[in-house]
Design a protein around this nucleic acid. Structure first.
Lengths: 187, 187
DNA sequence: AATATCATTTTACAAATGATAAAAAATGCG
DNA sequence: CGCATTTTTTATCATTTGTAAAATGATATT
């Protein structure tokens, strides 16, 4: 899937608006392990993932928890920076070498103010992410850890090959040891 | 807080756009216990809460879980209906007699397509809800049930007077029995 | 008062998960 | 390959949370 296609997949844009947006995108290649965005900072860059996989995590004293995986076609932002120009709660780590496209958040905000199709594209982007997040919150309450793991494997069968079990356990809201037990029980 | 004020609190609208939006709102009064929106249906109405409190819940075989409370200034929608014209996962129950304003989702969508300020207002609305939901997801992983309860009581001290402990326990992701134990331990 | 209804707390027991440590397996690199 | 490092599994025990049922409390109605 090209960047153009993944943009249009969120919300159909007329060609003129699509051009406005894509012209601003700068290609960036970065290596596995790179920290794309830092928690507790106001991060001004927005990234589109063309190739690769990343995780968003929040840090605590000793551990961190992964609460989002971004893959081909996804958009990476520091949500609080993007919405309110405040320090964000998430850091973003590249879990593979990535091909990204970068744009300044400010530039994007200007497009939102001037191009109605792009404003609605931004609206739809937030709405879709919101649905996914609410569904995860509900799933965590209704389903056991085992069921959540099986659900994830069904929806994202390729994830296991790209992401360590520690990150997946964290994403599911359990410890790595628990996930290992669950995997042993399923067999 | 008036409806006008709560709309502007989400995103500042010029007077002309604000009028476009508010002219479409129909006042509705409904009684405690009324089911405003039904899960598994495509719900076409959007509601603004002027007075009262509601809960969004998802149903399972025998139980239901509350995952959102809406109060004065909040907006009530069936998220999947609103975004994709698909059946939603949430039902909405009025927990008090409510003064609401109603607008057809279709009408709102038309405003999004024609008024850029309103499109950005809709964008900001979704973004703010998204931040709140992500923070709850993270909080559920980082904090114990006791901490989450105390956090909620700090941020929403009035909630306990308006909502039963059963709903609050569900919102926190624990059983009512657990919450009762927590409350006993805190004392 | 007596009754009914609903919300909350308490109790006892079972199941799930966490913490910790250690072993085993997989991976990366000189 | 062989070694070091990281990841995953296994085992043990403590803690948390869930389930079910009973007891208590609160409120309204008769």
């Amino acid at each position: 899937m090209t960047i153009r296609e993944s943009i249009l997949h969120i919300y159909p844009l007329p060609e003129a608006s699509l051009l406005l947006l894509t012209e601003l995108l700068e290609p960036v290649q970065l290596r596995k392990g790179h920290i794309l965005l830092q928690a507790d900072k106001v991060e001004k860059e927005v990234y589109f993932i063309e190739k690769g996989i990343v995780r968003a995590y929040a840090e605590r004293e000793d551990s961190d928890i992964t609460f989002w995986f971004g893959q081909e076609g996804d958009i990476v932002i520091s949500m609080r920076s993007y919405v309110d120009q405040q320090a964000g709660y998430e850091s973003i780590e590249l879990l593979e070498d990535c091909n990204l496209y970068r744009v300044h958040s400010h530039t994007l905000q200007q497009l939102f103010e001037t191009d109605i199709a792009i404003a609605n594209w931004g609206r739809r982007f937030a709405e879709k992410e919101l649905i996914k997040t609410e569904e995860r919150l509900i799933s965590r309450q209704f389903r056991t850890a085992t069921e959540r793991y099986q659900e994830l494997m069904q929806h994202q069968p390729g994830l296991l090959q790209r992401v360590s079990l520690g990150h997946i356990a964290s994403y599911l809201g359990i410890t790595q040891v628990s996930l290992s037990r669950i995997r042993a029980d399923i067999r």
